[in-house]
């Protein structure tokens, strides 16, 4: 397959060629989807260096497991699941190594979100895209990994509750509680960031 063929070929064609061992075709797939895979890793890890390393690992695993890809979902979706699993493994390792904060324990026990006042004014209304992205970036960084992960899987990966529960190894009820807390906390954090910027 020539360079021109590769750039004009669709993902299915490139995947078939890659499955036959065509590394140039695989390179084209990496080029097409690398930003999306990196973005997903970054959303979950909140660390650029780790996100790059895990993206790289995901692509290597993708190549090794390419024969298992049956085309049930799009190649991009399949690859994001690969990187998500790697991120979850990494986050679990990190969690084992650190002591849980009091805040995280409060979050896990539930109920904190019930006392949060409803944010009636949209704190992101009228923001430029880059400004909005930066604020969300800051707010996401203040969530615990469990809450951030549920949010990422639901909002960015469009996973259903039961799929998130299976992926994270918890009950659907826990997923609903974590998602609710994460959204409410995010709204409060975005409002706080807005207020700080106004001062």
């Amino acid at each position: 397959m020539t360079d021109k063929d590769q750039s004009s070929a669709d993902d299915k064609t490139l995947v078939r060629a890659s499955q036959q061992g065509d590394m140039a075709a695989f390179e084209e797939l990496v080029a097409r989807h690398r930003d999306r895979i990196f973005a997903r890793a970054y959303s979950m890890m909140r660390n650029e260096e780790e996100a790059v390393d895990l993206s790289q690992e995901a692509w290597v695993k993708g190549w090794q497991r390419l024969r298992q890809f049956q085309g049930d979902s799009s190649f991009g979706t399949w690859m994001t699941r690969v990187v998500i699993n790697l991120c979850l493994d990494q986050l679990r390792k990190q969690k084992r190594q650190r002591t849980e904060s009091i805040e995280a324990m409060d979050e896990e026990s539930g109920g904190v979100e019930r006392q949060m006042p409803v944010v009636t004014v949209n704190p992101t209304a009228g923001l430029e895209r880059e400004e909005l992205r930066q604020r969300i970036d800051r707010a996401l960084g203040l969530l615990s990994y469990e809450h951030r992960t549920v949010l990422v899987l639901h909002e960015f990966e469009d996973m259903e509750y039961k799929e998130i529960a299976r992926t994270m190894g918890c009950s659907i009820g826990t997923v609903m509680s974590r998602l609710f807390y994460a959204r409410r906390k995010l709204a409060v954090l975005l409002a706080d960031i807005k207020n700080q910027d106004l001062l």
């Binding site: 959303s43 992205r133 969300i136 709204a187």
Partner: peptide, 26 residues
Amino acid sequence: ELRNTRGALAEFEAGIQMPESREFFW
């Protein structure tokens, strides 16, 4: 509030790009 939060998140990942060049990363 829940709708606003969902809306704010909708475009978040679209702005994130791999910090390494195509050639170097590959």
